[in-house]
């Protein structure tokens, strides 16, 4: 199972995993802020009204969702690039 691990530099692997951990951590931090912190401060955010939307309501109904989509694509593109940078990308068939 671990054939692919041979010929790989252990340090490079560790760096790749650390990069992944950092990116994951940042993604989750934003995820946390736009949902839980936004819910927590919703009454305060509601005093800002844009196009009829109180901001607290908007975050729950649309804002957080848009950010989730961007977060996932951002994570995917960065990781797909990191695979190549750290030499652990999949072999093309």
């Amino acid at each position: 199972m671990a054939k692919e691990l041979k010929n790989l530099d252990r340090d490079r692997l560790r760096q790749y995993w650390n990069y992944n951990k950092k990116l994951t951590g940042m993604t989750l931090a934003i995820w946390f802020v736009v949902t839980y912190v936004a819910i927590f401060f919703s009454p305060q955010l509601d005093s800002i009204v844009i196009l009829g939307f109180p901001l607290g309501y908007y975050m729950g109904a649309q804002g957080s969702l848009i950010i989730f989509v961007i977060l996932i694509f951002n994570y995917a593109f960065k990781m797909n690039k990191a695979d190549i940078d750290y030499g652990v990308e999949e072999e093309e068939e």
């Binding site: 994951t24 993604t27 309501y57 729950g60 996932i72």
Partner: peptide, 24 residues
């Protein structure tokens, strides 16, 4: 009303967890 948005955020935000923790 507003409180129903828990379902909107909950059923979409889970995909962020799936994307970074499990899917790949």
């Amino acid at each position: 009303g507003y409180d129903g948005l828990a379902y909107i955020m909950g059923w979409t935000g889970g995909y962020v967890l799936l994307a970074v923790f499990l899917g790949p």
